[in-house]
Amino acid sequence: MRGPRAPLDIWEFFALQRAVIAAFGSILLASVAAAPISAAAADAKAPAKAAAPYKAPRNAFGQPDLTGYWSNATLTPMTRRPQFKDQLNYTPEQVKEMESNAAAEVEEGNEDTDPNAPAEAPKRPANANVRPEFAAAGGDVGGYNRGWLDPGSHVMRVNGEPRTSLITTPNGQPPPRKAGAPPAPRFGGGMGAFDSYETRSLGERCIMSFGRNAGPPMFPNGFYNNNYQIFQTADSVLIEVEMIHDLRQVRLNSKHRTDGVRPYMGDSIGWWDGDTLVVETTNIPQNQQFMGAWKDLKVTEKFTRVGKNRLHYAFTVEDPSIWDAPWGGEYEFSPMNGIIYEYACHEGNYALPGILAGARAEEAQKAAEAAKAKSSAPGGATQ
């Protein structure tokens, strides 16, 4: 039988302590090393969790909150350029080229210019994609160089996809017109009508934006001021259009007017379909025709907040007198960098009387030349 053990001296105590710590350390390391394997195995067995769909915040009325300042400026044109045919999205290389060209265009447009230099087309990279609206305006909107323009510097992305056009038909073009339907008006229609201020365009008269900023459907104009502010109340949604200080009212849960009046931007009513604001517009006036359609035109728009900085916009166009079936497109608004200030365009501008006065002077000159030619012709009036 063994007797009681003598107490440990200080050195034996430290040796035993080190042995215990080492043993616990080995156990701990082994468990930590095995943990990732166990976690990975558990994750492999568990189903992958999909990201929760975005839920738009609610306003004081319990509606999805669409309010704020938004922009639809973009490099993506309304209709697809022919070279892209049925290509819905740009390739990464095409996106890089277009956005790089836009950046270079801005840099060159901000260079100092000689005020005494003759008029010339603005410089562009040789491989730049020149937008049709820029070409139609002579490349600089009648005297504004690129430094004054803000048409957008990025390709339009919808759910992350870089789109080649805002219209989403297979070829990115409006569908064929029905037999007997009037032809679509040309871009800049009315430019040669100088008989009266009433024959000049609404944009030139500072009544509505040139292009289709106000809509419906709503599109960027390709030059500048493609900005909006959305307001919401319990019974209406208001869309302030910067170009040209237009205020579009959408009456919620209402009915279309039946008095035959066709107000600017048409008669818009709306309702909520879940998180989506659906807007239906009829009674669009003739001077706001869309590709020649107005009398029987119905435009249905859908606004859906799909992210903190993304407002999805989709539209459908119907006119049985022009097209066989409805068609449309989509894009996403992005947050505007800033707020909307007054667009100080008004119908009393100096250009309008100057244009009409110039036309009258030209007519008088031609009449005088015709009279002179007649009097000098054989058998004409004597002097």
Rank of each mutant, 00 (worst) to 15 (best):
E12Q: 15
F14M: 10
F14N: 04
F14G: 06
A15M: 04
A15H: 04
A15K: 13
A15C: 02
L16N: 04
L16E: 14
Q17P: 00
Q17N: 07
Q17A: 15
R18W: 07
R18F: 07
R18C: 07
A19E: 14
V20S: 08
V20W: 09
I21M: 09
A22W: 06
A22Q: 10
A23L: 13
A23W: 09
F24Q: 10
F24V: 11
F24P: 00
G25T: 14
G25D: 08
G25S: 14
S26F: 10
I27H: 02
I27G: 09
L28W: 09
L29E: 03
L29W: 06
L29S: 13
A30M: 13
A30S: 15
S31H: 02
S31Q: 12
V32F: 13
V32T: 09
A34M: 12
A34Y: 12
A34E: 07
A35R: 08
P36I: 01
P36W: 00
I37D: 03
I37N: 04
I37G: 14
S38W: 12
S38N: 01
A39H: 10
A40E: 07
A41F: 09
A42G: 07
A42W: 14
A46G: 00
A46E: 12
A46Y: 02
A46R: 14
P47I: 01
P47F: 05
P47K: 06
P47W: 03
P47H: 04
A48H: 09
A48T: 09
K49I: 15
K49G: 00
A50C: 00
A50R: 12
A51G: 07
A51W: 02
P53Q: 02
P53N: 02
P53F: 05
Y54D: 01
Y54M: 01
K55W: 00
A56Q: 02
P57N: 03
R58D: 01
R58N: 05
R58M: 09
A60E: 15
F61C: 00
F61W: 15
Q63S: 00
Q63R: 05
Q63Y: 09
Q63H: 15
P64F: 01
P64L: 02
P64E: 03
D65N: 15
L66R: 04
L66A: 06
T67H: 01
G68C: 07
W70Y: 03
S71D: 05
S71Q: 11
A73S: 14
A73V: 01
A73E: 13
T74M: 02
L75M: 13
L75S: 05
T76N: 03
T76E: 02
T76H: 05
P77I: 05
P77F: 07
T79A: 11
T79L: 13
T79F: 14
R81M: 14
P82D: 14
Q83K: 15
D86S: 11
D86Q: 10
Q87F: 03
L88T: 14
L88S: 07
